[in-house]
Simulated assay, not measured.
Amino acid sequence: MDFALELCDSTWFAPLVTPNGTAIRTIRESQNLSLRVVASKARLSPGFISKVERGKARARQESLRRIATALGVPVAAINREELS
């Protein structure tokens, strides 16, 4: 797992996006995938993905790309740019 990538996700200097966590969870559950399976495929921790789904963490574009790839969907299906 790439925990260094996760640590960067919470820093102010990295380009951040706000994913639609509800979309991630809906897609994951519709495919009957557990957090552990998606996390393993995305090389992220299950806890991090859970936080993203619940809106408790924000993910960088690279993490969103990994999650989307693990779910087999385009990034646009889970990505909502945050204008700040």
Results as ranks from 00 to 15, higher is better:
residue 78 I to E: 02
residue 74 P to D: 04
residue 8 C to A: 12
residue 52 V to I: 15
residue 25 R to D: 01
residue 52 V to Y: 02
residue 47 G to L: 10
residue 36 R to G: 14
residue 14 A to N: 06
residue 43 R to V: 04
residue 26 T to P: 00
residue 46 P to M: 04
residue 78 I to R: 01
residue 81 E to A: 13
residue 63 S to K: 06
residue 55 G to P: 03
residue 39 A to K: 04
residue 5 L to R: 04
residue 50 S to T: 07
residue 53 E to V: 05
residue 62 E to R: 14
residue 17 V to E: 10
residue 56 K to I: 13
residue 5 L to W: 02
residue 35 L to M: 11
residue 20 N to H: 08
residue 3 F to N: 08
residue 53 E to K: 08
residue 46 P to S: 13
residue 53 E to Q: 06
residue 4 A to S: 13
residue 22 T to P: 00
residue 24 I to P: 01
residue 72 G to D: 12
residue 12 W to H: 05
residue 31 Q to D: 02
residue 53 E to A: 02
residue 47 G to D: 10
residue 36 R to L: 11
residue 80 R to I: 11
residue 59 A to V: 14
residue 65 R to L: 14
residue 10 S to Y: 12
residue 17 V to Q: 08
residue 13 F to C: 12
residue 15 P to Q: 07
residue 74 P to I: 05
residue 19 P to Y: 07
residue 16 L to H: 08
residue 14 A to K: 10
residue 14 A to P: 00
residue 30 S to C: 04
residue 4 A to H: 09
residue 65 R to Q: 15
residue 39 A to D: 02
residue 60 R to S: 15
residue 48 F to E: 02
residue 72 G to L: 04
residue 72 G to A: 12
residue 44 L to Y: 01
residue 70 A to V: 13
residue 18 T to Q: 13
residue 12 W to Y: 05
residue 68 A to N: 03
residue 74 P to N: 05
residue 33 L to C: 00
